[in-house]
Write a protein that binds this DNA or RNA. Sequence first.
DNA 1: CGTTCAAATTGCTGTGCCGCAATTCACAAA
DNA 2: TTTGTGAATTGCGGCACAGCAATTTGAACG
Lengths: 226, 226
Amino acid sequence: MSLACSTCPVRDRAACAVLDEAEREELAKAGRTRKLKKGETLFTAGMSEAACATLLSGALKITSTDVDGRERILSLVHPSGFVGEMFAPYMRHDVVALGDSELCVFSGPAFAEAIERYPKLSQALLRRTQEDLYASRELLALTGNASAEQRVSGALLSISRAASDSPCHLARRFDLPISRGELADMLGLTIETVSRMLTRFEREGAIRRDGKRGIELVDPALLPLS
Amino acid sequence: MSLACSTCPVRDRAACAVLDEAEREELAKAGRTRKLKKGETLFTAGMSEAACATLLSGALKITSTDVDGRERILSLVHPSGFVGEMFAPYMRHDVVALGDSELCVFSGPAFAEAIERYPKLSQALLRRTQEDLYASRELLALTGNASAEQRVSGALLSISRAASDSPCHLARRFDLPISRGELADMLGLTIETVSRMLTRFEREGAIRRDGKRGIELVDPALLPLS
DNA sequence: CGTTCAAATTGCTGTGCCGCAATTCACAAA
DNA sequence: TTTGTGAATTGCGGCACAGCAATTTGAACG
């Protein structure tokens, strides 16, 4: 038996929030909660059984590994986000926990059935998937032909927006959710280059660094991409 | 009054194919067909009225233009493909015809209403959007930290697969749907580099070029990314 | 069959990022 | 506080790609 949805931390933001209470409890019977520690893998690309999940707390990364063995971060997943497959017969990408995380996991067929049964759920997921698609395309545009300076700057602004309550407002002070190496993997750069750009921004007075992860935007207008 | 769906070239592959005939004709009343010449713009990023469309024939590109004015191709759209917005209040990216094209266009609100009415349509679009999301992520992985050689090689294989009837089979001989410049914009390279890579592949015996657009895969195994 | 012009190719040079290595830093544990 | 360890920073060449310019190609036209 699953945890009751009434205590779910994302019960009013996740895709299943469009269902009424009875429907949601019914859906919950098909899923199960799961806890992941930092670095643990939820799904592996190529896995032959489809599955999907809603993130309750923590953070995930969706990655692919290229022929040379280098990892590429395709997307970050925040609480209430949705990952996985319900139509495809296998998992397309790796999904790994960035920090300790809690999830609500479903088998692919079970969730596909739920989508059949609840049209509202299908619509909510369509909305969400379109948002993910635009996020992916934004990242594509950012890492396309921009300089290293622009990429790091763009990532800072994007993370700052994600950290603030409103998506069009910048958080002046925030913590990077990922390491330099992961940021580099996301931007198609190297650790060293990311580090050099942060140093440059700080020297130019655009940002101030507070420990390994803390960032304060002193003068966002100085960042090459605003 | 719209063109009857019975003569639609993609009537059994487009998202609306999941509707029965009566429903489809009903939906068609909300849309209208439109023809675009090569290079004409369908949607412009920021346009305040949401709209969407199914591509009947021809080809489209979804692009964004960065601060320096360089264009980045985010996605190619083939017949039966779907583009545009029905939930967002504005268009996020530019959509331009790569060649003469025919479309079935809907206003955003009208299509949102259709999704409400026909759960099957919502599901079909969810499937399709997920496919687009994976395609976008594949491109992200390809252009991430791969060398120019790998990017061009990967694009050739990807286009060859798209040109063949089955998505896991390579077409030995095909025409590039886009110019060198557009291919470069898609891969985050320059025209010159794309050209040099094609020359290299031909010199090494992996491909043969036939005119400006024709490509024959002589020995795909020689391509660095297979 | 030539003409025309945009697209593609090729050569050359500069540079921005990578890749390695050494050092420093931050945070946690003793 | 000291110590230990992994992450981050910094310096230093090398190279792959960008950017410009000259040339060639090829598809459509008269």
